[in-house]
């Protein structure tokens, strides 16, 4: 039995101008050009997108959950980065 040797690509789609590209799934293709064409056929059959990105899944560098503490916790104690930290008098609070 022959197995499939095509590479795995992740697909990102911008659904409307002005919005971010959003991850929608993945597909198999031989190269970037073919991945882009298949992304069009497989993920935008109902005009879901105006722009498509594809990238090799292997090229993604992802954070591990084990790192989560060192990655995200340090920002937990920096409430001064958030707008709600600053209480202003009512007349000017709608800033």
């Amino acid at each position: 039995m022959t197995t499939e040797k095509l590479e795995l690509f992740e697909v990102f789609i911008r659904s409307k101008r002005g919005l971010d590209h959003k991850h929608v799934g993945s597909l198999h293709a031989e190269d970037h050009a073919q991945a882009l064409e298949y992304a069009r056929d497989c993920y935008t059959r109902r005009s879901e997108g105006v722009s498509i990105w594809v990238m090799k899944s292997n090229d993604i560098c992802a954070s591990q959950e084990d790192d989560a503490e060192s990655f995200y916790d340090p920002s937990d104690d920096k409430p001064y980065r958030h707008a709600t930290y600053y209480v202003l008098p009512d007349p000017v609070n709608n800033m």
Partner: peptide, 27 residues
């Protein structure tokens, strides 16, 4: 029928995130 192929693709793709390849699943 084309949608069904598409849905198969979405699901294989979701399944591949768990470290199994489509080739293995098809086998």
């Amino acid at each position: 029928v084309q949608d069904e192929a598409g849905h198969g693709l979405y699901l294989y793709s979701a399944c591949e995130t768990l470290g199994i390849s489509r080739a293995e699943m098809i086998e």
